[in-house]
Amino acid sequence: MTAPLVEVRDLAVAFPGRGGGPPVRAVDGVSFDIRPGETLGLVGQSGSGKTTTGRAVLQLEPVQAGSVRLLGQDLTRMRGRALRQMRRHMQFVLQNPYSSLHPRMTVEQILREPLVVHRTVPAGAERARVAELLELVRLDPAMMRRYPHEFSGGQRQRIVIARALAVHPAFVVCDEPVSALDVRTQAQIVGLLRDLQEKLGVSYLFIAHDLAIVREVAHRVAVMVGGRIVEIGEAAQVYDAPAHPYTRMLLDAVAVPDPAVQRARLGRVPPDIEGRAAAAGGARTG
């Protein structure tokens, strides 16, 4: 078996408590590996710590404890220039394709930026690389002179993906990359991410609350609740034979496009649990 590309061990992230209270452990002892060319799906409810985990892996959140190894090097011990040099190996695709592209920059300028920052192509060859990147995400290279507002949501997300892939990263964290898109566009972007993985061998940490989407992209899946991973395994095993009751609860809550099944599912949410779960889910305590 190939050595893992990403090795996360006992990762912990703490945020200061509200109103001088004790610190909140947003990520509390998380460990996982991602192999080259593999997708690990990270699922959980909002507030479970999945986004913070993704950011901490990329060293965009201060790590309180634990280690994150990428290509064998511990990122948590790196600072300044060393860490900046590692950034070309790890990239980020965010949820909102409307706010993650600079509105006054053309697509060419947007895609040129990482090439210049990381000096990955010789001076003068940037435009050719930009064209190549647009073709990679199935956009017409002739569109490089346009501005983000001239594109649809799905096209913008393709540009965001092209920007992430510009510097040949080995690893991309995708945080809810399709949740702002229509179903048909979602399916196209998910298909694109899978094709790019096959073509480029890139690994993904795919963070999403939609378990059905994650099933389409992930080889392995981790389920997160309250800052901890409660179950991790091969996708087929986690979905078909979940070991943890929380995983089962998440799976039962997925709205499936089958009227008879969905009616039965909604009927099974008992009213008292409904209220209690709501009270536990983010309500003020004390």
């Binding site: 997708t39 179903v183 939609d210 059905a212 989407i213 080889h219 392995r220 996708a235 499936v256």
Partner: peptide, 14 residues
């Protein structure tokens, strides 16, 4: 309807 992801299809190991 075809574009809606189903819970029934999973990828195998990488």
């Amino acid at each position: 309807l075809d574009a809606v992801p189903r819970l029934a299809i999973a990828r195998g190991p990488a």
